[in-house]
Structures are given as structure tokens and as C-alpha cells.
Amino acid sequence: MKYFIICLLLFAATSKGFAQSQAEMNKKATEAYRQADKELNDIYQAIQKEYAANKKFLENLRDAQRLWVQFRDAQLKAMFPEAAKNYGSMFPVCKSNYLTLLTTQRIESLRVWLNGLPAGETCTGSIGVKQ
């Protein structure tokens, strides 16, 4: 029984599922942000394609997206106002995680132009107005 427990502990200590290097954590967090950013760009492009005939909406969407990028960057500065070195080795993970959160929130707010709103919603604005 002791031999089994010792083997189990050794396995746990050497397993990648239990421990990661800082570089691996940074890489995973950065990749998660890149995936979210790609999804955001894909949704943005799909909206532009689907609403191609609604020029005024697309003009306003472009303005909103530019302002959102400025907002995202300002939020990041507000969250981490000091130089990166002041936050320690976890900073790249924290930064990527925060950017992923903000990007995911933006994805959800844009997704309504593709998926619509719940039935009975009366304040639809430009959602679904494709001409």
C-alpha cells in the first residue's frame, strides 16, 4: 500500500496536468486570448458580410469597434497601471486573461447581430435590418 501511495505521489509530482512552468502558463493564456481575438474578428467580418447593404449601420459599427479597441486598451491600463515588472512573473497570464475576458464580453455583445434577440424583444434597433 505504501508503495502504491509513493508511486502515485511521484506520478502526480511529475505529471504535466499538475504542474506547469511559467512559460507554459504564459503560452496557454496568450493562446486563449488569440483564439478569442480571432473569434471576435470572425464575428465582426460575418456581421459586415451579412449587413453589407446597410451602409449606415456598418459605418457606425466600424466607429463602435474602433472605440471599443480604445476602451479595451484603457481598461487594461486601468487594471495594470504600473510597468509590467511591478506585477511579477504572473503578469503575462493576468494580462492575457483580462484581455480574453474583455474580448469575450465584446463577442457576446456583437453576436446579437448574427443570432438576433429573444422573441418579443421590442428594442431591436438595427438588429436584423440588413438593407
Results as ranks from 00 to 15, higher is better:
Met1His: 10
Met1Val: 12
Lys2Arg: 09
Lys2Ile: 08
Ile5Glu: 04
Cys7Ala: 13
Leu8His: 08
Leu10Val: 14
Leu10Gly: 14
Leu10Phe: 07
Phe11Ala: 08
Phe11Gln: 06
Ala12Glu: 05
Ser15Ile: 07
Lys16Phe: 09
Ala19Lys: 05
Gln20Met: 10
Ser21Ile: 10
Ser21Tyr: 14
Ala23Ser: 15
Met25Ile: 13
Met25Lys: 15
Lys28Ser: 14
Lys28Pro: 06
Lys28Phe: 12
Lys28Asp: 15
Lys28Trp: 09
Lys28Arg: 15
Ala29Phe: 10
Glu31Lys: 11
Glu31Thr: 15
Ala32Asp: 14
Ala32Ser: 12
Tyr33Asn: 15
Ala36Gly: 13
Asp37Ser: 15
Asp37His: 12
Lys38Asn: 15
Lys38Glu: 11
Lys38His: 10
Asn41Trp: 03
Asp42His: 05
Tyr44Gly: 03
Ala46Trp: 02
Ile47Trp: 00
Ile47Cys: 03
Gln48Cys: 07
Gln48Phe: 08
Lys49Ala: 08
Tyr51Leu: 05
Ala52Gln: 09
Ala52Cys: 00
Ala52His: 02
Ala52Arg: 11
Asn54Gln: 02
Lys56Ser: 13
Phe57Pro: 02
Asn60His: 15
Ala64Arg: 06
Ala64Leu: 01
Ala64Thr: 10
Ala64Ile: 01
Gln65Pro: 02
Gln65Arg: 07
Arg66Thr: 11
Leu67Asp: 10
Leu67Ser: 09
Leu67Trp: 03
Trp68Cys: 03
Trp68Pro: 03
Gln70Asp: 12
Gln70Asn: 07
Gln70Thr: 07
Gln70His: 06
Asp73Pro: 02
Ala74Gln: 04
Ala74Ser: 11
Leu76His: 00
Leu76Glu: 02
Leu76Gln: 00
Lys77Ala: 03
Ala78Leu: 05
Ala78Asp: 08
Met79Asn: 04
Met79Glu: 06
Pro81Gln: 00
Ala83His: 03
Ala83Glu: 07
Lys85Asn: 12
Lys85Val: 14
Met90Cys: 05
Phe91Met: 13
Phe91Trp: 12
Val93Pro: 06
Ser96Ala: 15
Asn97Glu: 09
Leu99Gly: 04
Leu99His: 02
Thr100Cys: 00
Thr100Arg: 01
Leu101Gly: 03
Leu102Tyr: 10
Thr103Phe: 03
Thr103Ile: 05
Thr103Gln: 04
Arg106Lys: 03
Ser109Phe: 13
Leu110Ala: 04
Leu110Tyr: 04
Leu110His: 07
Trp113Tyr: 13
Asn115Ala: 13
Ala119Asn: 12
Gly120Thr: 06
Thr122Tyr: 01
Cys123Gln: 13
Gly125Glu: 13
Gly125Ile: 11
Ile127Arg: 05
Gly128Ala: 08
